[in-house]
């Protein structure tokens, strides 16, 4: 098992604390089957070596809702094991500026650990505060990771907190943004999913989105497959089985790549 990055420096009063959902993402992304999928897609040499094939552009990995940074720094630190190459570009997005700072710090700690043990890591671009993929240029993201606010709630909190809120209420608002998902817990996730055809890279783009049973994952997957014959959506990781229902699952969304051109 690959070590989990430390997040002990993060203040969990206003940033989502890593929980079962975060760990399911780590386990899924480092599973044998996902490593194989990612290495097939982004590296054509096996077993992993530190030299990626010439002229294969560095993949761009973006985590939306990076929170404490535990998932992004895990991928960043273990790039060579997961992708078969360490020349990956990583970046985080979060609506909560405190979460952006937390991610930056967690990445820094993870990089130090890797450097102490003389192992490689990816190249971290930074974090931006934004609403989902709204600030991203079209067609650039190769791997998008999203652990959404998936809890069904009667209302969605506004993206920007009222400046008149007390410090305690401002923190509560930020935490609410990290879990409150509106109707079926899907209002935020649906907006993210709708943006995927535009922001994922044409030939290599794929996304990992976490869903819970109340999100009606089968409906979500069917919806994506209707985008066109190349679009795929499959459950590639799950946890918390309860009478045949997966409590949490990771759905991989991708376009089957066209045949690789040799020119």
């Amino acid at each position: 098992m690959l070590p989990t990055p430390s997040t002990s420096h993060v203040s969990f009063d206003r940033v989502y604390e890593p929980a079962e959902d975060s760990y399911l993402l780590l386990d899924t992304l480092s599973s044998e089957s996902e490593k194989e999928f990612l290495q097939d897609r982004f590296t054509h040499s096996k077993p992993p070596t530190s030299t990626p094939p010439k002229n294969s552009p560095s993949p761009l990995i973006i985590e939306v809702g990076s929170g404490s940074g535990v998932v992004l720094s895990f991928i960043h630190a273990h790039a060579l094991t997961i992708f078969g190459r360490s020349d990956i570009l990583t970046a985080g997005i979060d609506v909560n500026p405190h979460a952006c700072q937390a991610t930056i710090q967690t990445i820094r700690c993870a990089e130090k650990e890797q450097e102490v043990s003389k192992t490689s890591h990816g190249f971290y671009l930074g974090n931006v505060a934004a609403d989902l993929t709204g600030a991203l240029r079209c067609g650039e993201v190769d791997v998008l990771i999203f652990n959404p606010p998936y809890v069904p709630t009667p209302n969605l909190p506004s993206l920007v907190g009222d400046p008149k809120l007390s410090a305690f209420d401002a923190d509560s608002h930020l935490l609410e943004l990290s879990y409150a998902g509106g109707e079926d817990g899907m209002e935020v996730t649906n907006r993210l999913i709708e943006s995927l055809p535009g922001i994922l890279s044409r030939d290599r783009g794929c996304a990992y989105v976490l869903l819970c049973a109340q999100n009606k994952p089968e409906v979500a997957k069917e919806g994506i497959r209707k985008w066109g014959s190349r679009w795929m959506a499959e459950t590639v990781g799950s946890s918390g089985k309860n009478a045949g229902w997966e409590k949490l699952q990771i759905v991989r969304i991708w376009r089957e790549s066209p045949p690789i051109s040799t020119t």
Binding site: A91, L125, V128, A135, R137, E140
Partner: peptide, 18 residues
């Protein structure tokens, strides 16, 4: 943020995207 980040960002205003 690294200067390279700017290669992947645009204006967040919908009307500007096109």
């Amino acid at each position: 943020m690294k200067v390279l980040t700017l290669n992947f960002l645009t204006c967040a205003v919908k009307a500007c995207k096109t």
